[in-house]
């Protein structure tokens, strides 16, 4: 068994930090057939760039874009800590407000985890829009929130309080929040063994 002593490696992209900018380049996956691999990487790069900007217009703090080309995005480096490391009900409530605004504008993040939310001491920035898309479906928003709840449940001991706090913030910013949160419960209960 080989010991992996390098820094934790992201799954999708190589992220370099150069001066004040983050350079995110989607790397090819050898396990995927080339045509599929390039299509996925190109689509995700473009979608990510577009939705990072749109989210900011909705009042969700996101990095400023500097350049987009090929499979690469250059953007602002956000100084701070992933809320995964400093999780608290207060931060979860703020995260709920932020996602409420995002969903109000029909943007689905697609990978809501506590690693993708960065606290800079003043506010939470949302990063990694690699799997984001536009939708006004209750189901899609429900799945988005469900994915976050799964991360809270799998990564944090105190997840019930955290989920409760998230819902509080989410309801503040989104008028049909209850409909979506009801759907989240349905998604959890849904038999996935059919």
């Amino acid at each position: 068994m080989s010991e992996n002593i390098s820094l934790p490696k992201g799954a999708e992209a190589i992220v370099r930090i150069q001066d004040d900018r983050v350079i995110k380049q989607r790397i090819p996956k050898r396990y995927r057939v080339e045509m599929l691999d390039e299509k996925i990487r190109k689509e995700r790069t473009r979608a990510e760039a577009r939705l990072i900007s749109e989210a900011r217009r909705l009042g969700v703090p996101t990095p400023i874009l500097y350049d987009v080309y090929g499979f690469t995005i250059e953007m602002e480096y956000i100084m701070g800590q992933p809320i995964k490391e400093i999780i608290s009900p207060e931060l979860c409530e703020k995260a709920g407000e932020m996602i409420g605004r995002l969903h109000g504008g029909n943007i689905i993040h697609g990978d809501l985890t506590t690693s993708n939310m960065i606290w800079n001491g003043e506010r939470i920035y949302l990063i990694d829009f690699g799997l984001s898309f536009v939708s006004n479906n209750i189901e899609d928003k429900g799945v988005d929130v469900h994915v976050l709840f799964q991360t809270l449940e799998s990564s944090h001991r105190d997840h019930e309080k955290l989920i409760e706090a998230f819902c509080r913030g989410y309801r503040k910013q989104l008028c049909n929040a209850d409909e979506i949160l009801t759907r989240v419960t349905e998604i959890e209960k849904r038999g996935r063994y059919a």
């Binding site: 045509m35 599929l36 990978d111 985890t113 799997l131 899609d140 799945v143 994915v147």
Partner: peptide
């Protein structure tokens, strides 16, 4: 290869 849907939502 024929293009077909590829659906990953989060995890």
């Amino acid at each position: 290869y024929v293009p077909l849907p590829y659906v990953v939502k989060g995890m």
